[in-house]
Amino acid sequence: MNIEEEPVYILRLFVAGASSKSVRAINNLQGILEDKLKNKYEMEIIDVHQQPEIVKSDDVVAVPMLIKKFPGPERRLVGDMSDIQRVLRGLGLLV
Rank of each mutant, 00 (worst) to 15 (best):
N28K: 06
Q51P: 00
A62V: 09
V23I: 15
L94G: 08
A16D: 09
R12S: 10
G17E: 04
I3N: 00
G72P: 03
D35T: 15
I67L: 08
R12L: 01
E74A: 07
N27Q: 12
E34Q: 15
G72A: 15
D35R: 15
A62R: 09
K36P: 04
K21C: 07
E5R: 04
V78P: 06
E5T: 08
S22N: 01
N2D: 12
K68H: 11
A62F: 14
D80C: 02
E42V: 05
I46M: 07
G17W: 03
A62K: 12
V95P: 14
K21P: 00
E53P: 03
K68C: 06
P64A: 05
G17K: 03
E5S: 09
Q50L: 14
G90Y: 02
E34H: 13
E34I: 04
V95Q: 15
L94W: 12
L93Y: 11
I26P: 05
N27V: 13
L91E: 01
Q50C: 11
I3R: 00
N39M: 12
L11C: 04
E4W: 06
E6I: 05
P64I: 05
V8S: 05
E42K: 14
R75A: 09
R76A: 01
I26C: 08
A25F: 04
H49A: 15
L66F: 06
K69M: 12
Y9N: 09
G79C: 00
R12P: 02
L94V: 03
S57G: 02
F14Q: 00
R75T: 13
N28C: 11
F14H: 00
V48P: 03
K21W: 04
I46W: 08
D83K: 06
L37I: 03
G31I: 10
